[in-house]
Nucleic acid binder design. Structure first.
Lengths: 155, 155
DNA sequence: GTCGATGCAAAGGCTTTGCACAGCC
DNA sequence: GGCTGTGCAAAGCCTTTGCATCGAC
């Protein structure tokens, strides 16, 4: 049998993180975070997609609450907002291993690949330091054409 | 006397670029591009700001046309859309010298610094190559806290 | 029992679009 | 003169918010 998804990991942290802020652990918040945990780190979901996916698994959460929860979880550092101008605001799980990851996006078909790079992080840290800033996060967006679309453009 | 702003450079290219696409050179399009040329490469303007600044210099362009023109000039590669989630869509002049420039943004007050980095471009090219993509542009967004805001957060 | 969270629906930005008129080529 | 571009206003997203009710602690 498939192991029952155990949102214990982050959800346990969720309860106490919320408590520290005088906020409550609700089924809705568990559902949203649980969804991101189920689908893993690679996923980039919009608010609408989160709402739809939860509906499909019979976990009703109103769209307004999805928005409120995405904002909350982002401000808590559990989710991370993506910066892809193509296709609106999206969110993904912000696991520690994922803090220095970058996006390679095909501007024609939207195909997105992730990659990591120590060099980029170093460059970001250097720039922040030189301007007296304290680095929080650094994300490289590479806009490109994938193999197929590149070929199609030649026509 | 101050040299009369000569939008000849890009505007000359503008006329022919437009012509190639079967489109026309209008005063409105010249005004929008001229504004970006006047204020130089460092500026990041929203549609609303473009509209306001043009009004202030008595160059009337309707907001709808500003939006249409920003989109047109971006698709022509003369302007470039920024990818700063804080504070909405912004545009800047896309000069050749500016193709590999990055943004250091204070997430609290919005202060934005630009910087360049050959290392970042190399990393982007490497990633694109490894996935079989053809690189168009690569932009590093460093989210950070500026000195002041960093100090304020400690309180 | 209190106070924060939710759901619904309405309001709110920002951006795009339909249409008649203007004006570039 | 034809056909694209403009201005205006209305419509369209996506997102946030007000308010009554619900429910976590």
């Amino acid at each position: 049998m498939p192991a029952p998804a155990t949102p214990a990991l982050a959800s346990g942290g969720l309860r106490s993180s919320l408590h520290d802020r005088g906020q409550r652990l609700t089924p809705q918040r568990q559902r949203v975070l649980g969804l991101f945990e189920r689908i893993g780190e690679g996923a980039h979901l919009s608010a609408e997609e989160v709402h739809q996916r939860l509906l499909r698994s019979d976990e009703r959460v109103s769209l307004a609450t999805v928005y409120r929860t995405l904002r909350l979880l982002s401000s808590m550092g559990l989710l991370q907002e993506l910066e892809l101008p193509e296709g609106g605001r999206r969110f993904e799980l912000a696991s520690a291993a994922h803090r220095d990851h970058h996006h390679l996006v095909c501007v024609r078909c939207g195909q997105t690949e992730e990659f990591e790079s120590a060099a980029v992080l170093e460059a970001g840290e250097l720039a922040a330091h030189q301007h007296g800033f304290r680095l929080l996060e650094c994300v490289l967006n590479v806009r490109a054409l994938c193999r197929c679309c590149s070929a199609a453009e030649q026509l």
